[in-house]
């Protein structure tokens, strides 16, 4: 069949066929799809014939939780038998269906962290076993600012398969070998795309790059390279006055990845787990001696911004923010990273 020609990159997938496709993939993969529940869209495990929602702007929770769960057991110990049982890391092959370009970019950022020097097997096992099927944004939400961070909302080449919404159907782009293979294996769902559809998709993709309400200029982030200047900037004091010190911005951030490791012991057994932690909490840096290097909200909020815009850049070369806008949408006191960057440069 012509559509199985490996050189063909563009295919079409009818929206009416998506459910059948998922039902077929379900046999082989663990699939995560955006599902609306209680007025919130989040990635949920797909069960046969489940409903899902592809008309979402973005999920409330970032997909980082599928790779770095809010809590995961590392091992358990049994005192009586004096044995240590490591968690089984084997996972079935997984698909995230409908990941947005900003979120898929956040995974590339997280990869840097979890691959550096010692490899984090817990993260990488899940990451290597997961196929990403991305979905382009045609309609960025009012808090999105991914374009300020060089994320292209209309086009994403880091995912295995990328979908562009053409109304009745999706234009399917296979970016990787795995993606091409998946399409090749299921020829009934994918037909070859014509020139006309490809042109229309390109139009839609470029339209997505317009219409952002918030953002900042790239050169405005350069000021953060010089920690000396920025560290004692009065803005941190100002932000700390209203910051509540809650963990919303860090827990909903698609690139925040700090975790805590703790042991919990019961009568005859114990376990070690890791769970999300937030630099906005007092206990995050509190030491056994009682000394806390970041005792106040000023130091803590500065840490969050400088980690993203300064420390991370000097260590990994990119800003640890993808402009998904979750912090902006959900911050109770409207602390806004785009405004902070703007204010430091222009006030």
């Amino acid at each position: 069949m012509s559509s199985n020609n490996p050189e063909t990159k563009y295919f079409l997938l009818k929206k009416s066929k998506v459910k059948d496709l998922l039902n077929t993939l379900y046999k082989e993969f663990e699939i995560f799809v955006p599902v609306e529940e209680e007025g919130m869209v989040n990635f949920k495990r797909y069960k046969l014939n489940n409903n899902f929602n592809m008309e979402f702007t973005n999920t409330l929770l970032p997909p980082k939780g599928l790779f770095l769960p809010q809590q995961e057991t590392l091992f358990t110990i049994n005192y009586k038998k004096e044995e240590l049982i490591e968690e089984n890391l084997e996972t079935s092959r997984r698909i995230i269906f409908g990941i947005r370009p900003c979120d898929s970019r956040s995974l590339t950022i997280l990869d840097e962290v979890f691959k550096e020097k010692s490899e984090d097997v817990y993260y990488l096992q899940k990451r290597n076993n997961t196929l990403l099927i991305g979905l382009g944004c045609s309609n960025p939400q009012i808090y999105c600012f991914c374009s300020s961070l060089e994320v292209d909302p209309g086009k994403d080449s880091s995912v295995d398969i990328f979908l562009t919404d053409l109304g009745e159907k999706y234009l399917v782009t296979a970016n990787t070998k795995e993606g091409q293979q998946l399409i090749k294996d299921l020829p009934v769902y994918f037909e070859k795309a014509g020139e006309e559809e490809i042109t229309r998709a390109l139009e839609i993709q470029s339209q997505a790059r317009e219409g952002f309400s918030v953002g900042f200029a790239k050169k405005d982030t350069e000021i953060f390279r010089d920690v000396e200047i920025i560290f004692e900037h009065p803005i941190w004091e100002e932000l700390a006055e209203t910051c509540l010190g809650c963990g919303i911005c860090t827990y909903l951030c698609s690139t925040c990845h700090c975790f805590d490791i703790a042991d919990e012991l019961a009568k005859n057994e114990g376990r070690r787990f890791r769970c999300w932690d937030s630099c906005q909490f007092f206990s995050f840096t509190n030491m056994t001696s009682g000394h806390n290097p970041r005792p106040n909200r000023k130091e803590r909020i500065r840490q969050r911004f400088l980690h993203k815009l300064s420390y991370f850049v000097s260590r990994y070369g990119s800003i640890a923010c993808v402009g998904c806008g979750r912090c902006l949408r959900n911050c109770p006191v409207d602390i806004d990273i785009t405004r902070v960057i703007g204010a430091i440069n222009h006030e």
Binding site: Q70, G245, G247, I248, Y251
Partner: peptide, 12 residues
């Protein structure tokens, strides 16, 4: 089960 323990409810 959805609670993230962000403690926003307490802090606000």
């Amino acid at each position: 089960s959805r609670c993230l323990r962000c403690y926003a409810c307490r802090n606000v």
